[in-house]
Nucleic acid binder design. Structure first.
Lengths: 103, 103
DNA sequence: CTGAAACTTAAGTCGCTACTTGACTTTGTT
DNA sequence: AACAAAGTCAAGTAGCGACTTAAGTTTCAG
């Protein structure tokens, strides 16, 4: 799932879509790659629930799906807070040792 | 930088380190790969400022570096809020159209 | 109906990346 | 001193992943 965000072109797609929906051709033009390559990127982004798309007529319109972004954010926050809480506990232990230096 | 988080073994290292520091050998044992491979992962994690490490004697001890986590979190938050603000503006436009249906 | 536009799918190429093995350096133990 | 432990470095290999080209498919315009 972070794998989807690891590619610069896919991140560019995300950034583009935060400014509004876009078609496959538009995204391809902006990235400077083939339409086929863009479709493959979109497949990855959809599998990670970072992008949704809907086809009407012959044109597929893509937009952000907040679910994936929230998941990624949640994982990072979990790691960071776990680390911070550990530091808190460590600080408490050190404080105890200061107050009561006897082993 | 997201590339560092894209690998499952590297994420496992992060998760392990949130529970306290560890040596290279300990991390290698937990991952089930060679020490050499683990060193390579650590190199990537350090380049992204996700992990710091210090060598004392012949043993290197690793711990979380919050800088990278914060950067990743910030990028995700930027994208998410940009998207939410866009929805807000869109909502405002639709409200205007309701009030003033004349083209 | 003909043809172009927008996308889809399949196959192939090429570079990158994770991993290993093996040789080496440094540090600690007996 | 001699050996073991912990890590580092350098190649080498296997597989994945991003991209392309080429051949469909579907939809819309004239």
């Amino acid at each position: 799932m972070f794998h989807a965000l690891a590619d610069a072109n896919r991140r560019a797609v995300i950034e583009r879509l935060t400014r509004g929906p876009a078609t496959v051709s538009e995204l391809a033009a902006q990235l400077g790659v083939t339409v086929a390559a863009t479709v493959q990127h979109l497949q990855v982004l959809q599998d990670s629930e970072l992008v949704r798309s809907e086809k009407v007529g012959r044109v597929r319109t893509c937009q952000i799906d907040p679910a994936g972004l929230r998941n990624a954010e949640a994982w990072l926050r979990r790691q960071r807070t776990a680390w911070e809480h550990r530091l808190d506990r460590l600080g408490a232990v050190l404080d105890d040792q200061k107050k009561e230096p006897g082993s």
